[in-house]
Design a protein around this nucleic acid. Structure first.
Lengths: 154, 154
DNA sequence: AGTGAAACGACCGTAGA
DNA sequence: TCTACGGTCGTTTCACT
């Protein structure tokens, strides 16, 4: 079950995570030789990290290469409780990222669409149609300069 | 070598990707039985998808669980060429996400920091100190509502 | 939490269609 | 680009520390 607190990771676990951030399918045996543990010990630690929700090992795809040519960040201003709007956004499949923020936007949502028509339909018919959405501002992506999945073992 | 064009993925490749989006370490053999191909064929297709940059299989970590308690999105307005600022941001290790956008911000950058002091130092001493940065607006994250790595096989 | 060893299953290279 | 197959290596389980 995922813990909410920050786990105390020792140097060995950090080293294991770092290996897997480069190659999620790297064998436990070869990680073991690099970090100086037995293969079984590495496997147990990886299992614990996965169970605790500290990391997950997954395939991540490049949207441009799988037919999603138009991405954007949408900033929303909301009246009243923003959790309902945030919840509604999380259920939309084009929306891959939702954060509740402090600042001139209450919510930031990243959307991945096939083309401009798709984005327009999503924005006008579904996002701006949500109750309590007062205003939106759309930042169409021109270029993705950096995308790191490797948080947290620097 | 990563191609820049969007690849044409058939139903089988999409099915393989979908399996790996749930478990990046799932064995080729068990994927093979699910999609109805031989183990070697699955292995070859996965290798091609990785080589083409269509997907990568990596460990992704939860910043809160590895000691990064303060995240934020920073919108930047830039004078002149924005590529230099974007490039400078990509070299900063706290910056995990940089996009060049159209709208009232020229660049959006997501940063992952240990605490507020760290964020303040990064923002004032390093980001706002960059040449041609005219203005910034910081959206401190209160709650991460949704984070999907599974782009593109819907 | 970690080690070691033995049985099992997955992975890899190669050949052939 | 797929299947078939044999050798090798990785993984799993378990008893022990």
């Amino acid at each position: 079950m995922p813990t909410k607190q920050s786990a105390n990771l020792d140097a060995v676990s950090k080293a294991i995570i770092e290996q897997l951030q480069h190659d999620g399918r790297k064998s436990y045996a070869s990680i073991a030789t690099e970090v100086g543990l037995s293969e079984a010990a590495v496997r147990q630690r990886v299992q614990r990290l996965l169970d605790a929700g500290v990391m997950q090992i997954v395939a991540v795809t490049d949207p441009l290469q799988v037919g999603f040519l138009r991405s954007a960040m949408i900033g929303l201003r909301v009246s009243g409780d923003m959790t309902e709007v945030a919840d509604a956004l999380t259920t939309m499949e084009e929306v891959d990222y939702v954060v509740t923020t402090a600042g001139s936007f209450d919510i930031l949502a990243e959307v991945v669409c096939e083309d401009d028509d798709h984005l327009l339909e999503l924005l006008t018919k579904r996002i701006r149609a949500l109750p309590n959405v007062v205003a939106t501002e759309t930042f169409v992506y021109l270029k993705l300069n950096k995308q790191l999945y490797n948080w947290g073992t620097r």
